[in-house]
């Protein structure tokens, strides 16, 4: 679980260790990555909205 989150975070950031990437592709199943990706996209949208609200105060 934590491994999936870490890998999705790395994908959002755009940088991943080669070894970790290999491991994810060889051992992981795709569905948990997809779910984590969608959820994290929502969190990102929330964060951007939060920054926008704070910025205009």
């Amino acid at each position: 679980m934590w491994g999936v989150i870490k890998s999705v975070l790395a994908a959002f950031f755009g940088v991943q260790k080669e070894g970790q990437r290999r491991q994810d592709f060889e051992q992981g199943r795709p569905v948990p990555f997809l779910v984590a990706g969608v959820l994290m996209a929502l969190v990102l949208v929330g964060l951007v909205a939060l920054v926008a609200v704070l910025a205009s105060r």
């Binding site: 950031f13 755009g14 940088v15 920054v51 926008a52 704070l54 910025a55 205009s56």
Partner: peptide, 22 residues
Amino acid sequence: WTAIPLLILVGMAVPATATLKK
């Protein structure tokens, strides 16, 4: 080299958003 541009962009976006909303 990913984190530095990220910080620069967020740093520019904060004041820009404030003006845009006005």
